[in-house]
Design a binder for these strands. Structure first.
Length: 471
RNA sequence: GCCCCCAUCGUCUAGUGGCCUAGGACACCACCCUUUCAAGGUGGCGGCACGGGUUCGAAUCCCGUUGGGGGUGCCA
């Protein structure tokens, strides 16, 4: 028997959102597809037509594309969503009924609860199993859970046993005749020749039901793999409402896709060796689903940022400048766009590159070069000009700057000369100058930007700071 | 309630019975370098949840306890 091409199914998330946890599961699926010459199958499934599907699926495929996952061949809107497919799901349910694996029941939810209360047992008790009911108004079709055990073979977790008598006879067809998601899911998997289902561990408890359905429908179940969920600092599953969970947010902040992918992969898994920063090709080579951890992982933005900083520093200068473009042209930028000067930015870029973890931090390091009046940090200003030497030395520097040669080296030695006179170290002496020029107490090395700013503008800013200090 | 999963530094992990005095990464701290801030370098702090077994030997295997998470709909 020839083994079929593996088809790895990825569904964004049960709530229909491509959050970071889903991104990781997508990565696992993608990886497996690459390693095993298989196909990555993205399937969006939802019966709620109120969700805007074209827009929603577009968002997901965009995010996948950003992560480097090609979903073009496999993108698929779940048949379940399209009402025309409902017939197939109903037909499958009816086949189950005909084969004797299901039965109809007319009990209402209230009646079921009453019976459960009276008997002390949990959930539905199989009351209608042998009543021989047929389809009809108010009748649901339930699956007849067989006696015995269901064992799920899971690539990540090994064998997981479920006693069938702890699983109640679940609904396949609602009383209005519509199929239930669980059923539709299995029918679609079979229709799409899915061989491997890789998803989050929250689905594990429902897996025996699905597996029984596969068997009842006469198909050997797929290989299952339930990977751990991602949690927040409260150890709760990442939730859209409470946590920063959308991949796009990280993209917009200037996280690089390589860093995102690399970090996501270290959640639940680690490459061999003393470094976790490894290229995707290495991951493809080494990753094994069998080696994935069993416990939930906390999504640590600090570590993500650290990874991102590493990736930024690994870039060539040209690449870095290129990567900065979106964030420099964003509408959020504090300077008027027409004042932006690419040449100036490119000159300062090497000094910026080692100082940012995410690209979104870039504008704040260079804004003073492009703004007419950079805002001044009051607290920093007060502190820097609090000493009695601040103004006099700054005036001296200004005097020297009026006539000296305009180059980084000279600008620096002039300040050092003033420092020597007053017995002040450069580190200290440059404080007021830095505030005057940049408005802040920290930033890139100072003399490069002064050179870029030019003599007239630099002197203007120094004088304006001196005036401000003497008020 | 019932069912399932999980348990190594603060966090992410390595570890598959002796190479473990438990290794790395992020974070944190100190020092070096230094033009502030970074980057870089060196070092430090810090962990096998608990209790029983099995074994010559347990982070590793088994049982239990505790703690966390998830599932359990005529939701998806």
């Amino acid at each position: 028997m020839a083994s079929p091409t593996p088809r790895y199914r990825f569904a964004p998330s049960p709530t229909g959102y491509f959050h970071v946890g889903g991104a990781r599961t997508a990565l696992y699926n993608w990886l497996l597809a690459l390693q095993n010459d298989g196909v990555f199958v993205l399937r969006v499934e939802d019966t709620d037509e109120s969700r805007n599907h074209p827009q929603w699926t577009q968002g997901i495929t965009d995010a996948l594309g950003w992560l480097g996952i090609d979903s073009s061949d496999s993108h698929f809107e779940g048949p379940y969503f399209q009402s025309s497919y409902a017939a197939e799901h109903v037909a499958a349910a009816e086949a189950i009924f005909v084969a004797g694996h299901g039965y109809y029941c007319d009990l209402t939810t209230e009646q079921i609860q009453e019976r459960a209360k009276a008997s002390g047992l949990n959930g539905y008790d199989g009351y209608s199993r042998d009543r021989g009911l047929g389809p009809g108004p108010g009748h649901v079709l339930r699956f007849k859970v067989p006696a015995g055990q269901t064992v799920v073979h899971d690539t990540v977790r090994g064998e997981v046993d479920f006693a069938n008598d702890t699983i109640e006879d679940f609904v396949l067809l609602r009383s209005n005749g519509s199929p239930v998601f669980l059923l539709a899911n299995v029918v679609d998997d079979i229709a799409m020749n899915i061989t491997d289902v890789v998803r989050a561990e929250e689905h594990l408890p429902n897996t025996p039901k699905q597996q029984m359905l596969w068997n009842a429908l006469g198909s050997p179940p797929p290989r299952w793999a339930h990977v751990p969920v991602l949690v927040n600092e409260q150890r709760k599953k990442l939730s859209k409402r409470r946590d920063k969970v959308a991949v796009e947010q990280y993209r917009d902040e200037g996280i690089l896709p390589e860093a995102m992918v690399n970090y996501l992969m270290t959640l639940g898994w680690a490459p061999h060796g003393d470094t976790e920063i490894v290229p995707w090709s290495h991951i493809v080579e080494e990753f094994k689903l069998e080696n994935v951890n069993h416990s939930p992982a906390f999504f640590d933005v600090k570590k993500l940022n650290a990874f991102n900083g590493e990736y930024i520093r690994m870039m060539s200068l040209d690449k870095f400048i290129e990567a900065c473009q979106p964030v420099l042209k964003s509408e959020q930028v504090p300077w008027p766009p027409e004042r932006f000067n690419p040449d100036v930015f490119n000159s300062i870029a090497p000094l910026v590159q080692t100082r940012v973890a995410v690209l979104a931090e870039v504008p704040a390091l260079v804004d003073f070069l492009f703004m007419e009046e950079p805002p001044i940090d009051d607290a920093a200003f007060t502190k820097a000009f609090g000493s009695d030497w601040a103004c006099p030395t700054l005036v001296e520097i200004a005097t020297r700057y009026e006539t000296c040669a305009w180059s980084v080296d000279v600008l620096k030695t002039e300040v050092e000369a003033v420092g020597a006179k007053h017995d002040l170290k450069l580190g200290k002496l440059q404080g007021p100058l830095r505030i005057a020029i940049t408005g802040r107490s920290v930033g890139t090395p100072l003399f490069e930007p002064i050179e870029l700013l030019g003599r007239a503008e630099s002197l203007r800013r120094i004088n304006s700071a001196v005036q401000r200090a003497s008020r």
